[in-house]
Amino acid sequence: MAIENINGCIGCGICVQTCPTDVIRLDPKTKKAIIKYPADCQICHLCRMYCPVDAISITPEKSIPVIVSWG
């Protein structure tokens, strides 16, 4: 399901800023990154590359149906 897991987050918020499609937010209580809008993940890996502790793991599957030009 696209962005899948966040382990070892220190809550710096960089991934929140970095994600072009606004998938990640900081949980107001735990102050840790959460995958808030997984359906909008475009699987670009920017968040993972920018995370200082490499906490984010991403799989290639999209969580909603994928529409392409032919199938």
């Binding site: 220190i10 809550g11 710096c12 960089i14 102050k31 993972r48 590359m49 920018y50 995370c51 200082p52 502790v53 490499d54």
Partner: peptide
Amino acid sequence: LLVLPRYFESGVEPTDAFITIITTTNSIGV
């Protein structure tokens, strides 16, 4: 060691990552 692997890949640079980590002082864990 946490930021060392970044040296071998093209994510954020190890030094930048390290600075981000130690300046995230709003995190109790840090």
